[in-house]
Design a binder for these strands. Structure first.
Lengths: 164, 164
DNA sequence: CATGAAATTTAGTCAAT
DNA sequence: ATTGACTAAATTTCATG
């Protein structure tokens, strides 16, 4: 079973990435289809796992989370990686956890209240099993921050089997 | 003019961060208020800039964007920073642009199709005025990726003047 | 797949508290 | 600031092309 993202799917995805609460009738106007057609396409995009989820974005500053930082961590021994990930996942201040190539083994993105809480967070992470070093880049200004991806109609078929 | 986020606002924000398309009547059930009250609170949270926006999340893998990478860039001369940011902002593959402390001056987060397109992107960035060095961390696995922030009712008043 | 029309659900308005 | 009662709008269902 294979599917492709056509021009209209691409438009719908672009619109919903921009405005996740856009009404179906307005989407329908944009793409030139009826409301039930848009609903059906959205349902299928969700079913196929192209549309993963919808989220509100809250301004961290308004909640006194004034520090954003990237923390590059070195975790010794890959047998300790799962535990590291588990501990990091449990902390709501940690928004992203990736394993990476190059210097270090993991990259974290964190939002925290101030330099004091950042220091506490770093101390906590450094105390975890296998954690050797951390390198922290504190964000001074953010100029662009989005999860939106450019969507073009795909010429290539997407085989479900290949993905998960 | 000052405002505080009470227990119910915190619940609403948490729910909408989890599900950005949650219906007002479902939110109302969760928080124990009427639909008009929930609408009014959402309107005010948006007005005050606490709720910034709503977005659908699209799976990059389904669109053949198989590479995620963090690129730490050194841009010489702060007078060249605005141009760097402007050029970077224009590229849809670049999802995040931050100026940072420590090693390098900027941190980029990028999504691109494959190692070939990543190489092209790096070459492009390295050609920009003032760009000296780049250090790339390619993501092998992502374990957590969210923009959701922990929301607790604030005891402290938030003065509009202090923000923006 | 797409559509219009009908049925159902959700959201907006507003006077009253 | 919150509500119920009302009206308007949005969404789902479904028979048909």
């Amino acid at each position: 079973m294979s599917h492709r993202i056509d021009e209209i799917d691409a438009q719908i995805l672009t619109l919903l990435q921009q405005n996740g609460r856009m009404k179906r009738n307005r989407i329908a106007e944009h793409v030139g289809l009826s409301v039930p057609s848009v609903s059906e396409r959205m349902r299928k995009l969700e079913e196929r796992g192209v549309l993963l989820s919808y989220h509100a974005v809250v301004d961290p500053k308004r909640l006194h989370l004034d520090i954003t930082a990237f923390i590059r961590v070195t975790v010794d021994g890959s047998e300790l990686h799962p535990e590291f990930v588990e501990r990091a996942t449990a902390l709501p201040e940690i928004q992203e956890i990736h394993s990476i190539t190059g210097e270090g083994t993991h990259m974290l993105k964190v939002r925290t209240r101030n330099t004091t809480t950042l220091e506490q967070l770093l101390a906590q992470i450094q105390g975890w099993p296998g954690v050797h070093g951390t390198t922290t880049s504190v964000v001074l200004s953010t100029f662009k921050e989005t999860r939106a991806v450019p969507v073009k109609p795909t010429e290539i078929y997407q085989y479900e089997e290949e993905l998960v």
